[in-house]
Design a protein around this nucleic acid. Structure first.
Lengths: 229, 229
DNA sequence: CCGGTTATGGTCACGCTGACTACTCGTGAA
DNA sequence: TTCACGAGTAGTCAGCGTGACCATAACCGG
């Protein structure tokens, strides 16, 4: 008989974020089992005995979101472990944030009743399972903050993109509008942020925009602050 | 028979930081048991079945560092869960950073052979147990970064302090020197950082310095960047 | 060709910062 | 008592990043 004192299970929960129609969206699954059957929840799963935390996150991403590891930026957010957060018993859950460019609609399958994208604005109206509302809020705030001082915004875009698309990421995630000229100056002059390509995007009613791809820098110095503007 | 697949244990590891002689110090314990018997490690322990993660961190703080909860600022850093990080089996460990003002020498006791403060500069010379070198490096970098954009520095100081002491925190943690006048201007004019008191510190060879206590702000806007100066 | 639209570049005032100087207010020695 | 010293605090000034705003470039449709 194994000691009951060790009966703690470790899970990963995924906050999969992408932009759809210039809005920040998160992937939720509808639970098919108790507890919280029928409620919407973050995709997640228990880790295997020999599996690294990050590998478990990628596995859940593939199982419940049909997303390969190449498409997303994965990053640990925080660990949630309140004793009563899961009625089945003690579950300590490591939250991972996954960001990707225009991710596809999830395939049906696995042990979930349904899965779909939700605009983060819709979420105030629904009750998420477990403590997932707090997990989600924590992750979204983390993503918003990291746009300020890292080059994380490019993970929401395809390999090649225009400055306007990049500005759209900031505007969508922060829910603000930014001055086009000032943003252009800032983005193009910040060391390591962007690499200028010799190609142009198809025009969208005006002058064609130059294409850029992500630079090799991870930090934005000086930062691109949302407080101002 | 309980399934072996659940045989994962959850622990907390503590990175207790304080300033001693104008140097950033970390509390390490010398292990009295295998594995890594005799090696220095971060204080830590397994969580109880009904215990919140933060409560477990405070318990370890009391047990292995003789520190009450009132003296420190506690904050989750990251979770480490590589499959082979502990030879005894699968251990997922949540790292917590604890910051305090001039913390006392640890009392002997518990299941550790020894416990003492180490200057972070000494640590390059020794091999820490498990993956604790990585955990420690990650936490120190987090602390250094958070001094820039939060009021965290005051947690290294007693309730009442001078601007010079506050500047000393930044200089010690960052390993730099800062201009006294510019730092004074920045600290006193940043909203919510400090509250001016009507008292003065005992002189230390010059004009007595006014005393301040921590303000109610958590964020520093604009940030106090280390890159410059 | 012309007006609408988007992209991109330029100008200018303002505020924060770093470097530096000056003055305040204690101490201890001459 | 006076003086030099040391630390605290205030002030000056140039440089830079930023926001507000304007100008021009380049493509579209009529």
């Amino acid at each position: 008989m194994v000691s009951l004192a060790e009966d703690i299970r470790v899970a990963v929960d995924l906050i999969v974020l992408t932009l759809r129609d210039d809005t920040l969206n998160v992937l939720l699954v509808q639970r098919d089992d108790e507890p919280h059957r029928g409620a919407w929840a973050l995709p997640g799963g228990f880790i295997d005995l020999e599996e690294d935390l990050e590998d478990a996150a990628y596995r859940v991403l593939a199982d419940e979101a049909s997303l390969g590891s190449g498409a997303v930026h994965l990053e640990q957010v925080r660990t949630f472990g309140a004793p009563q957060r899961d009625p089945r018993g003690r579950v300590v859950s490591v939250a991972f944030m996954a960001l990707g460019a225009d991710l596809p609609d999830p395939q049906r399958g696995g042990d979930v009743a349904d899965a779909r994208w939700w605009s983060v604005d819709e979420l105030a109206a629904i009750d998420l399972a477990f403590d997932h509302a707090e997990v989600l809020a924590c992750s979204i705030e983390r993503a918003r903050a990291k746009l300020e001082y890292t080059t994380l915004a490019v993970t929401f875009l395809p390999q090649e993109f225009t400055i306007s698309q990049l500005r759209g990421v900031y505007e969508s995630v922060w829910g603000t509008t930014l001055d086009a000229g000032n943003f252009h100056r800032k983005a193009t002059r910040t060391e390591g942020f962007l690499v200028e390509l010799e190609r142009y995007a198809a025009p969208t009613g005006g002058r064609p925009a130059r294409l850029y791809c992500a630079g090799d820098g991870a930090a934005l110095v000086p930062a691109l602050l949302r407080s101002s503007q």
